[in-house]
């Protein structure tokens, strides 16, 4: 199968673009390019991964200004056309603000930034991040965010659950859901979601920081494997 070409949109204040670039190229063996936020076209790209950081400083709500960047237009078109569009951390927040994914992020329950390893449990395998996983499989990944406390009103949350759009939940290593395993207070322990169609997905943890033992874990490898498999299907 031919290698896919991934766009990595870079906003002023984005700071994980090199990590994602390296993971896509050197780890997942794909083609990938950084794309400045003022680009108005994503022609020639098969997929996009929005990396972590603090787009436009995130002094307002995280991601609230990024949705007005020119690159968001071709990105939305890419999502509309059914191609793969995913977000990591700040990328998740940006996709929410752009209306491409449900929910909003509140400040962490601790009111502090949290950077540590967490475990997530795979909830369903119909998304670009989970295509190579098995339901119930748990994976250790690092988080690093101050606003990752996933929120939706009750009825919307029920709809999200009923539609099977939750892809990851924070859990214990054995998959059980405890308060201690939830690093930010997210409702229903939600760590990652997808859209109804399944081609747009995001998660707060960083697979781009966990792809070799020296980094403290390899949990991210399975997610990049998923991206490749999903984009090939």
């Amino acid at each position: 199968m031919a290698r896919r070409r991934f766009a990595i949109p870079v906003f002023p204040g984005t700071n994980c673009e090199e990590d994602v670039l390296h993971a896509l190229r050197a780890v997942a063996g794909q083609e990938a390019e950084l794309v400045w936020h003022q680009e108005r076209s994503l022609a020639g790209f098969d997929a996009a991964v929005i990396p972590g950081g603090f787009a436009h400083g995130d002094y307002l709500r995280a991601g609230a200004l990024a949705r007005f960047s020119p690159v968001m237009e071709p990105l939305a078109a890419m999502a509309e056309s059914g191609r793969l569009v995913v977000g990591i951390c700040n990328g998740f927040q940006i996709l929410q603000e752009a209306g491409l994914l449900p929910g909003a992020m509140q400040r962490n329950r601790s009111l502090a930034y949290v950077c540590r390893d967490v475990w997530v449990r795979t909830e369903e395998t119909g998304s670009p991040f989970t295509a190579a996983l098995t339901p119930g499989e748990t994976i250790r990944l690092p988080v690093g965010h101050a606003e990752g406390n996933f929120h939706l009103p009750d009825r919307d949350l029920e709809r999200l659950e009923a539609a099977g759009q939750v892809i990851f939940r924070y859990s214990e290593p054995d998959g059980s859901l405890t308060e201690a395993a939830n690093p930010n207070g997210s409702r229903h322990h939600i760590a990652g979601v997808r859209n109804r169609r399944g081609n747009v997905a995001a998660l707060m943890p960083h697979p781009d920081r966990a792809w070799e033992p020296a980094l403290g874990g390899t949990g991210g490898l399975r997610l990049f494997e998923s991206l490749v498999r999903w984009s090939e299907s």
Binding site: D19, H22, C115, R116, P142, G144, R209, W211
Partner: peptide, 11 residues
């Protein structure tokens, strides 16, 4: 303290 610092960015 150090869990409040991003200590993993740049991989």
């Amino acid at each position: 303290i150090y869990e409040q610092y991003d200590h993993m960015v740049r991989s």
